[in-house]
Amino acid sequence: MADIAVHDTAAHAGHDDHGAHVTATGLSNNKLAMWLFLGSECLLFGGLISTYMLYRGRRGTDPGPAQIFDIPLTSISSFILLMSSLTMVLAVNSAKRKDDSNTKLWLTITALLGCLFVGGQVYEFTSFYHEGLGFTSSLFSSSFYTLTGFHGVHVTVGVIMLLAMVGIISRGRVTGDKAEAVEMIGLYWHFVDVVWVVIFTLVYLIPA
């Protein structure tokens, strides 16, 4: 009996009842690393937004924000991305309740909303291009496409992570704490949303 108890303790050494590692700080190393990564992402987007703010008036005779921006369309895209943050947080809550079917459902809805947002961005870029705003047309266009394009790539990566997570949960191949794995993707997704909150206001709504 004593031997079994010793074996059981050894087998679970360094893990809690959620299947996660117990660390020296008492905090999840994965979560700490994710927050550090998001902090560094602030620098990336900070640089891109600053560049856009400085160059948005440098366009010569090319079309500018007032001529090409479709605010109603971008408002709908912004609303879609905002609602995807709600579905993401519902997925995290479902994962914490160990409710796999609802977790997969909310993750899939979040991914679909992300796809809608990216689709809107592709449509926007295409229409801007047809109106004569190429990537190298002016400093304004270069900084605009770089900023919003980088954000679009982040959303696309988020969609891939969400769909991969749905697949991993479906196959039952989540190693460690499942709720934490979903929460990590959730943090990334909310960050992408929060960056768009800034871009939508500074780039689209505040007049140049």
Binding site: K31, L32, L36, G39, L43, M88, H190, D193, V194
Partner: peptide, 26 residues
Amino acid sequence: FMHLKFDSPIFSAMFYIGLGLALFVY
């Protein structure tokens, strides 16, 4: 949504340092 209100202040510090540096860059 990102649970900073409910989580350890260390996570907040990690993010706010990055955010502060980004504002400094601007």
